[in-house]
């Protein structure tokens, strides 16, 4: 690739991402009539967290000072990014193909489809962020979560958050790629995958709780390390109370997260290219499911 082609690619990538972000935001803010928005982004996550708190309270007979409690609470709160970001990216394929019927026009246009899809996920990330903030705020104010903002390592927090979101978006790209090939039920892909990963990523219990032969799955996925970093950056002492990843320093965890994210990221680009090629071969790009 000579220099001018590279420049063209860069500007195509950037404008695909930028315009897709705009479009994603238009779509998100369209259905967010305030009531719907409140239910979906605030009431739902907060009540889910509240249920968790109640269950925890019953089982531990109100032992909210145990470090396990904020571990669960924060893990659950941040995990909501997993579904929203993956879904934001992959749902764009289904939405454009089946609903707006524009996917083929996107494909004909001089844009980078992966950049376009990632852009479509940005709105999801922003709304998820709002509900994460509100969930944590609700936890601190009403649900016994002890959190001191002055003690938090904000640099670590934002760096980890950024890496994690990119990692989740790349995983969303894999789901988007699969959505190109399987018409049926692909709407549930993100839901299903994030549900399964929930079991293995140590979101609401340390990995040691899993049977030994299942634990490697947890160690292999970057989400595990990401959640740990999110917790540690906010409430450092808490996460260190658990044996699972306690041996790793923050920097080591960050290194593992970056390493795994790069591996997953590169893999997802290849998966996307392969599926994209296959979709073209089989004529699936403008195929609507028509049920």
């Amino acid at each position: 690739m000579d220099r001018s082609t590279a420049a063209v690619t860069r500007s195509e990538t950037w404008r695909s991402f930028r315009i897709a972000t705009w479009l994603g935001w238009q779509i998100a803010s369209n259905w967010t009539d305030p009531l719907w928005f409140a239910i979906y982004s605030i009431v739902r996550p907060v009540s889910r967290a509240a249920i968790l708190v109640v269950m925890y309270g019953v089982i531990t007979q109100g032992n909210f000072s145990d470090p396990l409690f904020p571990y669960i609470y924060l893990g659950n709160a941040f995990y909501s990014y997993v579904f929203t970001v993956m879904n934001g990216v992959s749902w764009a394929v289904i939405d454009d193909r089946e609903h707006y019927r524009t996917l083929k026009y996107m494909y004909v246009a001089p844009i980078r489809i992966p950049a376009y899809l990632l852009g479509r996920g940005v709105a999801g990330f922003l709304t998820a962020s709002l509900s994460v903030v509100i969930t944590i705020l609700a936890g601190v104010l009403f649900l016994h979560v002890s959190f001191d903002p002055l003690q938090a390592d904000w640099l670590l927090f934002f760096v980890s958050l950024a890496i994690g979101v990119v990692m989740l978006a790349m995983m969303g790209l894999v789901l988007a790629a699969l959505s190109l090939l399987v018409a049926r039920h692909s709407g549930f892909l993100a839901e299903g995958v994030s549900g399964v990963l929930f079991l293995f990523s140590g979101a609401i219990y340390p990995l040691d709780v899993l049977p030994v032969w299942l634990q490697p799955i947890g160690y292999a996925i970057p989400i595990t390390y990401w959640l740990e970093l999110m917790r540690r950056s906010l409430i450092g002492s808490v996460a260190e109370a658990f044996p699972t990843l306690a041996a790793f320093s923050n920097l080591e965890l960050l290194g593992i997260l970056v390493g795994l994210s790069v591996v997953f990221g590169v893999a997802s680009i290849y998966v996307f290219r392969a599926c994209d090629k296959r979709a073209r071969e089989r004529g699936l790009i403008d195929r609507t499911t028509n049920y």
């Binding site: 500007s11 195509e12 404008r15 695909s16 315009i19 705009w22 479009l23 238009q26 779509i27 369209n30 707006y100 019927r101 524009t102 026009y105 996107m106 246009a109 001089p110 844009i111």
Partner: peptide, 20 residues
């Protein structure tokens, strides 16, 4: 086809942006 939630002009503008 088209994004029903966008106006005619917005729909067209958006596609024009994809073409730079």
């Amino acid at each position: 086809s088209g994004y029903g939630l966008l106006t005619v002009r917005e729909n067209l503008w958006m596609f024009s942006q994809f073409y730079g």
